[in-house]
């Protein structure tokens, strides 16, 4: 079976996972290996759209709310969840973008969520590559959201707390036997002089390190201004570093 490759991004809040996901996407688009790419913002506090420069028009959470209300009020009439999910996918020139968002109502959503999970897995199968940006924290792992996934990238900024979170994520993934084939630690915003420390802390955490995205003034300025990261200068050091990480990921990945 031709499974899509799935790269998921996680880490402590503010550790740079959304920036990392955006830089990896920029590197992927430059590389051109994958034809159909779906980017999923699975963070309830969705902000990947800003770093990709795509306004959010609709979310899956809104579609779920709408469908649940339709089912309550009109005996099933209305747009089916699968097609609403497809409508929510925004088509950019070179990739597709889906924002999960969150539901607003109260009460039981089990049936709708169950249908959503199935539709989402079918939808992911239609792509060559799926990038998934998770929210901070560990709860989505417990809910087993976003599986299956071949590669989990844990972003760590230069703080001890960030490595503690990475260690807890790694432990939780193993405890729950989540089907990640590979887990990597990525250093985000590390000054050059602290890179050795990153590799040392990664070893202590017992997680394989993929590499480091250096601290970069242009990336920081764009994040501050709310500008996108897909139009970075091709020689930008952070983008070049992301290209290097991608090279390693794709070269060492499971056969698709």
């Amino acid at each position: 079976m031709k499974k899509p490759r799935v790269f998921s991004f996680t880490g402590k809040g503010g550790s740079g996972k959304t920036t990392l996901a955006s830089l990896m996407l920029a590197a992927l688009l430059r590389r051109g290996t994958f034809r159909d790419i779906l980017v999923i913002d699975a963070d309830p506090d969705a902000n990947l759209s800003a770093t990709l420069g795509i306004p959010v028009e609709a979310t899956v959470g809104q579609a779920v709310d709408r469908r649940r209300n339709e089912l309550k009020e009109s005996a099933g009439r209305g747009r089916k969840l699968r097609f609403s999910l497809w409508d929510t996918i925004r088509h950019d020139r070179s990739f597709d973008f889906l924002v999960m968002g969150r539901t607003a109502g109260e009460g039981c959503y089990c049936a709708v969520h169950s249908a959503l999970t199935e539709s989402l897995l079918d939808t992911m199968a239609m792509y060559d590559l799926v990038l998934m940006d998770f929210g901070a924290g560990l709860e989505h792992f417990s809910r087993r959201a976003g599986n299956p996934s071949d590669t989990l990238l844990i972003s760590c900024d230069p703080s001890r707390l960030s490595f503690d979170t990475a260690r807890r994520i790694d432990e939780l993934v193993r405890e729950l036997s989540l089907p990640y084939e590979r887990i990597f630690l990525v250093g985000s915003r590390f000054p050059r002089e602290a890179e050795d420390l990153f590799y040392q802390l990664a070893r202590e955490a017992g997680i394989e390190s993929l590499g480091v995205i250096p601290a970069d003034g242009d990336v920081a300025a764009r994040n501050l201004a709310g500008d996108d990261l897909l139009s970075l200068d091709p020689v930008n050091p952070a983008l070049r570093a992301a290209e290097g990480l991608l090279e390693r990921l794709v070269a060492s990945g499971p056969a698709s």
């Binding site: 779906l38 497809w86 996918i89 088509h91 939808t123």
Partner: peptide
């Protein structure tokens, strides 16, 4: 057949 999202949506 394993569909492609963009092309399937275009047909819909």
């Amino acid at each position: 057949v394993l569909p492609r999202m963009r092309d399937l949506k275009m047909r819909l």
